[in-house]
Every structure is written in structure tokens, then in C-alpha cells.
Design a protein around this nucleic acid. Structure first.
Lengths: 159, 159
DNA sequence: ACGCTATGGTTGAGCTTTCAACCATAGGAG
DNA sequence: CTCCTATGGTTGAAAGCTCAACCATAGCGT
């Protein structure tokens, strides 16, 4: 067992600020969506992805990867959204294992309705408080972290 | 209803990178702790806070606020940790409503055991990938977001 | 064609989190 | 002292997430 390389005081400070800030943001986003649109952020993200896809349709696997959801999480979420009538499943003709998720009209309407409040919340908790420079920095930093992270994000890296 | 101020293309890019990066990090941290130490990150954070407090003891409310947990979430978590023998509750003599949480020896041992692996994971997913400058920037950004956020973080700001 | 492994996706159990309701005590104001 | 409200904390139910197990089809090598 090698020596433990503890975090420096400075790194610790950063890490704790990171935890507090991200938790605050996440909770704030979640609460606003739940309160105003009766949906968790997960559903919102799924619907956004679908709304941007051709025919508002995506393969489950595509959808999972884009949002970094586990397959299982997505599957459960889509099941619940299907029950709400926001999404439909269709089978894939070219690969009988596969499945498509399609955003319904009702789903699109719900999304359109939820969007303004959500965007406002993102602004007020995040963008409105940072300088343009900081926003750029944050973008770079997140892109870096993201790229450095394990890739398909399942399996391999944590056995 | 005022005009919706949508996010610019650039802000959207940042926001999506933010979501992907933070989700990746969170999941990675959670998985490592669960796999190697059979505890969720929540417990780890609680135990860290306690381990640093005088007599390894804190009021529930203090504990909740420091980590930005809802009272309810903390209460449930402490109950489970108590069942594991990692934490004990004591009543507060000066305020009979209050309660203290105390980290037990067993809890401390478990924490000490979990720490090295956790730190290593934080390094490898975050710090190792950023330049010193980026780390400083991230620290500043998170501190700003945190300060700008709603404060006691319950009630008031989202009715 | 056969068998083997890999891939796409679902399922159920168990754990965590949230929300709202709740109980008990504290700390004023009248 | 007696309300009346605020604070500290807990609880139960409902919703979401994770993990591991699973089923079905794909696609390769022979």
C-alpha cells in the first residue's frame, strides 16, 4: 500500500466549496422543477434530448449516453414518463433488441411549459452570479473534467 | 409574464458541460465509496464533519447546515449510521429539543479506513486533470456560487 | 449451422431522498 | 402566567436511484 497523498489545505478548501456549491445548485434546480412542473430534473433532461433529436426520437442507449445516465436509471425513468403519457417506446426494426423513445405531443407541451422557469432558475443560481470570464473558465474546466472521466461510464473503470 | 431570456448558445454549452461533469464526478465518488467501504458519500461527509468537531460532537442542526443537508435527510442518515454503530445520539441539556450526534470509535475507524481510497478517487477524477490555475479558478467560482445561493437553504426562497 | 460472447434493454429488491405532517420545547408579547 | 409563534428534530409514505440478475438478439469464429 503506497503512501496516501492527502489533499493540501488549499485543495480541500476547493473541494468543499465544490461540494457545497454543486449540492446547492442541484437542489435548487430540482426543487424549482418539482414545485412548478411536477417533474424531477432527470425527466426534463430526457425530454430536452428527445426534443432536439430528429423526429423527437432516440435510441435508449443514445439517450443514456448523452446524459450520462445508467441504462437502468433511464429505463425506469422512461417507464414512469410513459405512464404520464410524455414519452412512447417503439421497437427498432433493424435491431430487435433495441428500443426507441419518442417524445409525445403532450410531452413536448409539458416541456415547453417547464422551460422558462427552469432557465430562469439556472440563470439566477449560476450565470447571473459569475463574470463572463468565470463562465468561460467554468466551461473549460467542466469540459476537461468530462473528457478526463471514464468513458462510456459503465463497467470498465470501477470493476 | 415577461419575455423569456433563453440561454445563449455559449451558456448552454457551459451548462451542459457542467451537468455532465458534475454527474460524472458524483457518480464516480459514490461508486468508489460504496464499493470499497460500503457507505454512501453522505455518510462519509457526515463523519468527516463530526471527526473535526470538538469531542467529535455536533448539534444536528449544525451538521445539517455545514453540509447543506435537509434536516430530514440528516435525521434518516444518522438513524442508519446509528444502527451501524458509527454514531450515537445524545440529548442536549441546555435545550431539550436539541440533539447531539457523536462519532463513535468504531465510526472513526471506519472513516479512517475509507479516507485514502476516497481521496485518491477525488484526485484522479478532479485535481489530477486540472492545472493549478484552473483549480484556483474553480475554487473562486464555487465560493461565489455558494455565497450567492439562498442561505439557510430551506423554506424562504422557494415557497 | 453451431456455439460463444457481447450488446441493448428491462426488472425487482433494497436503499436513499424528499415532502409534508407532526411533536415537543423555547422564547417572546400581552 | 398564558397564549402564540418559531425552532429543533423526527417520522412515514411515496418517489427515485443503484445494483445485480436477467432475457433476447446480434454477430463473430469455426
Amino acid at each position: 500500500m503506497a503512501e496516501v497523498r492527502w489533499l493540501s489545505k488549499e485543495h480541500q478548501r476547493v473541494w468543499r466549496n465544490y461540494l457545497a456549491a454543486t449540492r446547492m445548485l442541484e437542489t435548487g434546480i430540482e426543487r424549482q422543477l418539482q414545485r412548478d412542473s411536477h417533474m424531477p430534473a432527470t425527466y426534463y433532461e430526457i425530454m430536452v434530448s428527445l426534443s432536439e433529436a430528429p423526429d423527437r426520437t432516440l435510441r435508449m442507449s443514445e439517450l443514456a449516453e448523452r446524459n450520462r445516465f445508467s441504462r437502468s436509471r433511464l429505463s425506469h425513468a422512461v417507464a414512469r414518463m410513459e405512464a404520464e403519457g410524455w414519452v412512447e417506446r417503439r421497437e427498432c426494426p433493424s435491431d430487435k433488441r433495441g428500443a426507441f423513445a419518442v417524445l409525445t405531443e403532450a410531452g413536448f407541451a409539458v416541456l415547453a411549459d417547464a422551460a422558462p422557469g427552469h432557465v430562469e432558475q439556472v440563470r439566477s443560481l449560476l450565470f447571473d452570479n459569475l463574470t463572463d470570464e468565470q463562465i468561460n473558465q467554468l466551461g473549460e474546466i467542466c469540459a476537461t473534467i468530462r473528457k478526463a472521466g471514464p468513458d462510456p461510464f459503465a463497467g470498465i473503470w470501477i470493476p
